[in-house]
Computed example of a mutant assay.
Amino acid sequence: MLARMIPDLSRFDAAIVDLDGTMVDTLGDFVVALNLMLVDLGLPKVAPETVRPLVGKGSEHLILSVLDHVLAPAEASAVQQRFDAAWARYQHHYSHVNGLHSAVYPGVVEGLRALRSHGLRLACLTNKPTAFAKVLLAAKGLDGFFATVFGGDAFERKKPDPLPLRKTCEALGSKPARTLMLGDSSNDAHAARAAGCPVVLVSYGYNHGEPVRGVDADGFVDSLEELSSFRAARP
């Protein structure tokens, strides 16, 4: 199959960058906070391999999925009944471990610098709660790259709905067609397609446990550092 071409970075006015799985490997933070939450609830702990495919759809989805896993074969109503307590404990613990068990992926800083060197305005758009996202970016020294940061609680709907991308484009003052979306999952790609934004995905992220190269995207990179010379999707 022929590689699909996308414009040179100089033809974009802005870029929207996902956080978990794209800029920072936060799996360790999630696992620690979730297990502390489960201990508080008197429930068994979960392993990283259980958590990894659940990342990316927001904290509510993550907590409900973990409860469903540890309470199986409980009815959905039983899971929902535990949610409020679980949410409160998770929020408490995550606020204390945020950034402590995570690491910036190689090439991220170089990639963000490349985007800025092309004059692109940058926004971080994640399904993580906004407050947690801002703390994490600051802890990892990435906050200075972004004109604005929007989390999963910033708008009425989360990715893969296109609303967050459209609203972020408005905040950046850029048209969707001239705004590049960078992410790690089908959530990012589906939202970008529906919003009219070109999309490039990293190969190393989470993508709900599925092969990322099976996602409909304009291109893929193994490191954000590749953006400095990016021209076409890999075959």
Rank of each mutant, 00 (worst) to 15 (best):
V17S: 11
H101V: 10
K57E: 14
G173M: 03
D8L: 04
D222Y: 11
G21P: 09
L112Q: 02
G209T: 15
E170H: 11
N187L: 12
L182E: 11
D84C: 01
M23F: 13
Y206R: 15
R157M: 04
G99N: 08
H96V: 13
A47T: 09
A103I: 04
V108A: 01
D29I: 02
V104K: 03
A33M: 07
D13H: 08
S228C: 09
A138Y: 04
M1V: 11
L67C: 05
M1S: 14
A85M: 15
D40S: 13
L36T: 06
P106A: 04
V202L: 13
S185F: 08
L62C: 10
S102K: 09
E49S: 14
K134G: 01
T22W: 05
T126E: 05
H208Q: 15
C124Y: 05
A47R: 15
I63M: 14
P164A: 07
G111L: 06
V109R: 12
R121S: 14
T179E: 10
H93V: 14
G173C: 14
N98W: 09
L227K: 07
L163N: 09
H96W: 07
V221Y: 12
M5Q: 10
V221N: 12
A138Q: 11
V55D: 06
G214K: 13
L227A: 07
E225Q: 12
E226L: 02
L125Y: 08
V221F: 14
A194I: 00
V215L: 15
G214P: 08
F150R: 14
P162T: 10
S174R: 09
R193W: 10
E60I: 03
G111I: 14
V221T: 05
T168H: 01
F220E: 03
S186Q: 15
C197D: 08
G219F: 11
V17L: 15
H101Q: 11
D188C: 11
V46S: 07
A78N: 03
V46H: 03
A171C: 07
L9A: 00
A195I: 07
N207L: 07
A191N: 13
A189S: 15
G42K: 04
L2G: 11
A33L: 06
A47Y: 04
H96A: 15
D13L: 11
I63D: 05
A232Q: 11
Y94L: 01
D184C: 09
D40G: 12
G99F: 13
S228Y: 01
R157E: 14
S229K: 03
L142K: 12
Q91W: 01
P211I: 00
V199P: 10
